[in-house]
Amino acid sequence: MKLILCVIVLLVAHASHDAASPRDEPRWNEVASNDGSWIVRWRLLVEGKPAELPLARKRFTIELQIESTGDPQETPTAVLVDAQMPEHLHGMNVAPIIALTTGAVGSALATAEGMLFHMSGRWEVDVDIDDGTTVERAQWNITLP
């Protein structure tokens, strides 16, 4: 069932950006949370359009599709999105605005608007998913040239 749902989500996502932009538009990326409780699909929007990378010192948005892998499935009740530069011991200079929309049981959509990478280098994006009892992190790196 989960697999079918996953395929449907991916097909819908694929169809939607096929309609909106050329075929080489960046796809959704997928990452498992750090204890495997969630699958997080994400993509970047720069000036409202899907993009492979953000632009330095320009605000961008991260779109998230979050799905529980648990049994029973938990539903996110809150999501935090943040980013930091581990090598530089600091994070972003701005606070993004996060919106969460819960969908069917075990899934949610979220956007983090106003993300801004002010320096080149490795950024670690952290998505903290709260199911009402624990907060579990999903993370990935974006290297800004």
């Binding site: 972003m92 701005v94 606070a95 801004l116």
Partner: peptide, 16 residues
């Protein structure tokens, strides 16, 4: 403007 939105979202951190 873009700059205006950035200014409003700025945060001050002790490491600055």
């Amino acid at each position: 403007s873009e700059q205006a939105k950035i200014v409003e979202a700025l945060v001050a951190r002790p490491d600055q």
